[in-house]
Write a protein that binds this DNA or RNA. Sequence first.
DNA 1: ATGGAAACGGAGAAAGTCAATCCGCTTAAG
DNA 2: CTTAAGCGGATTGACTTTCTCCGTTTCCAT
Lengths: 213, 213
Amino acid sequence: MRADARRNRERIMAAARDVLVDQGPDAPLDAIAAAAEVGIATLYRRFPDRRALVRAVVLDVLGRAAEEARLALAEEPDAFQALARYLHRALDLRISAVMPALLDHMPLDDEEIAAIRTRSWGLFQQLIDRAHAAGTLRPDATFADIGMLLVRLARPLPGPIPRDLNNRLAHRHLELLLDGLRANRAEPAAPLPGPALTLADLQAAGDAAERSS
Amino acid sequence: MRADARRNRERIMAAARDVLVDQGPDAPLDAIAAAAEVGIATLYRRFPDRRALVRAVVLDVLGRAAEEARLALAEEPDAFQALARYLHRALDLRISAVMPALLDHMPLDDEEIAAIRTRSWGLFQQLIDRAHAAGTLRPDATFADIGMLLVRLARPLPGPIPRDLNNRLAHRHLELLLDGLRANRAEPAAPLPGPALTLADLQAAGDAAERSS
DNA sequence: ATGGAAACGGAGAAAGTCAATCCGCTTAAG
DNA sequence: CTTAAGCGGATTGACTTTCTCCGTTTCCAT
């Protein structure tokens, strides 16, 4: 593979990540090519269709997230600190904005995607379990809660806010959230209302909704 | 105005609120008409174009929010409790999902909209000021922080999650957030990192980005 | 009850948007 | 210097969305 071809391939992936997050999963492919400063034909040459492009983006981002989770587990002695570190990193990777945006177009049955997703989620679950075990993460905050809150933080705010500002605000708000997640032995907070979902519950609810539509 | 006409007008506004939030600000008007169970011609008869419909929706939702804020200020003696109550109500009104979704198509220079918006935001600011003054809201959480966090909570999560579940989760996560917002005299939290924006800052940043594009 | 004004629904024309291909030009690399 | 590999962007065709027109139905005052 020629050097310029490889370079362009990566430009396209990075642009796809950003444009798909900002404009939604049906963003025109021309827009992605333009953001990558590449002709539309170049995009089609590397990725025969939208599906292939999305697949590549998802694999890339899931892989990076898994690596960050592994490092956090390995390098941070304090369990809550490890979780916090991972969440900040995940925010930078935009994984929680990319994945849900691409839910519809993602080949969930794809073997390679399934494997890396299982691995990534497993490590995330470990981070949470360790913090629960250490007693520093409030016990009523579940995997699904933290995952969904990260989704809420990662998606860019609407309006013409510069990307950089958006990002710094997300980290600021994550800190606020972490203060809500920390267990407070002195004055235990009132238990959270509403459904304490596991990931399995969430998938089941989604599947049910899908079937009925 | 005939009774059926008035009824249909309200069905259209309610449908517009939901569809615009779920599908984004460019949702086809046919989709709104369908959701209202009304012919497309009926929609066009009441609202000559998208702009007019958006304007009506915005006025409606801003008005209701202002009323809720007024009631919270009047009826809740505890300042933090008043703020919490208003935030839960605002979540139900979906105001923080509707407004940002319609930012682009909104006639911000419209006199009537400007007036009700000023009123609504003023009341919200009062709720925050009172909680700050009472010392129950952490001092480094600004108006912009709370407003933007509400936006993050109000937008529906992506994926095929039923509306009702989505809503209950939003309230659950709001509770978690409120625990992060509460001032904790015993162990004061580390100050929030990043930009502590006022609303004016936010608008200035947005305007600057808009001009340069 | 009933006449008629008001309101309704949906087909369809016109305008716009997006995907995907083709072909002449450029560039990397041996 | 040669040449195979790569590139850009105009273009075509399929699809989507807006908005109007007109025959039918519904309300309501008398």
